[in-house]
Simulated assay, not measured.
Amino acid sequence: MEWALTLAAFVIGGVFGYVGHTLLAKNNRHKSNNEQLEQTQLELSQYKQEVSDHFDEHYKQLAELTAQLNRVNQQWNASASLFTSPVTDKQLPELKVQNTEKSEEEVELIEKKELTAA
């Protein structure tokens, strides 16, 4: 009779052990997935910031280049009017810098569209 109780206790302990192990493994896997998701979201937001900074820097460089070209055009126009006759007076056009900055609302709408698409 003792061996039957021992065997029953062993089987019940095995079942409880299996159920406990399954629940703990699910919980650990869930935590691991959440941590990995948070890490990936952090990396994505850092990458978005780097790309945004990159384009901002290029925009500033293009604005500087446009200003320099405008100064050269003004000097050219001033020199050309001195050395040519008034009949052939051709002026170089002045370049304008376009405002390509987006408002915070537009950025948020774009991000929401990207999140819903993913």
Results as ranks from 00 to 15, higher is better:
Tyr18Ala: 13
Ser81Tyr: 07
Tyr59Ala: 03
Ile12Ala: 10
His30Glu: 15
Glu35Gln: 11
His58Ile: 09
Arg29Phe: 09
Glu57Val: 01
Leu95Phe: 11
Glu57Asn: 06
Leu65Met: 08
Ala25Asn: 12
Ile110Met: 12
Phe16Ile: 15
Glu105Ser: 04
Val11Glu: 00
Leu69Met: 14
Tyr18Trp: 13
Asn99Phe: 01
Phe10Ile: 04
Leu24Cys: 08
Gln74Cys: 05
Gln98Leu: 13
His58Gln: 15
Val72Ser: 09
Ala9Val: 09
Ala25Pro: 00
Phe10Glu: 05
Leu92Val: 08
Trp3Ser: 11
His54Ala: 13
His54Lys: 14
Asn70Pro: 02
Gln74Trp: 05
Pro93Ser: 10
Ile12Arg: 01
Asn28Trp: 04
Leu24Asp: 08
Ala63Pro: 00
Leu7Met: 11
Thr100Glu: 06
Glu2His: 02
Pro93Asp: 10
Thr22Tyr: 13
Thr84His: 06
Asp89Arg: 04
Thr100Val: 11
Lys112His: 04
Ser45Asp: 10
Phe55Ala: 00
Leu82Ile: 06
Asn34Pro: 00
Glu108Phe: 01
Thr66Phe: 00
Glu101Asn: 03
Thr40Gly: 06
Ala67Arg: 10
His58Asn: 06
Thr88Tyr: 13
Val97Glu: 04
Thr88Ile: 09
Trp3Cys: 05
Leu7Val: 09
Glu94Met: 13
Lys26Arg: 14
Asp56Gln: 11
Gln75Gly: 07
Ile110Ser: 07
Ala9Tyr: 03
Ala118Gln: 13
Asn34Thr: 08
Gly17Glu: 03
Val15Lys: 02
Glu64Leu: 03
Ser52Ala: 02
Asn73Gln: 02
Asn34Leu: 14
Glu101Arg: 12
Arg29Met: 14
Ala9Asn: 12
Asn77Glu: 02
Lys48Thr: 03
Val51Arg: 04
Ser32Tyr: 07
His21Tyr: 15
Val19Arg: 10
Lys113Leu: 14
Leu92Asp: 03
Leu95Trp: 05
Val19Tyr: 10
Ser103Gln: 06
Ala9His: 05
Leu95Arg: 04
Ile110Phe: 07
His30Arg: 15
Glu38Gly: 01
Glu43Lys: 13
Asn27Val: 11
Glu114Ala: 12
Ser103His: 01
Ser103Asp: 07
Lys112Asn: 05
Leu37Met: 12
Ala80Tyr: 15
Lys113His: 06
Gly17Trp: 01
Ser45Leu: 08
Leu95Ile: 00
Pro93Thr: 07
Glu111Ile: 08
Asp56Ala: 12
Gln75Lys: 10
Leu109Asn: 05
Ile110Gly: 01
Glu43Ile: 09
Leu44Asn: 07
Lys26Ile: 13
Leu7Phe: 14
Pro86Ile: 01
Gln39Phe: 10
Arg71Asn: 10
Thr88Gln: 06
Glu114Gln: 08
Ile110Leu: 14
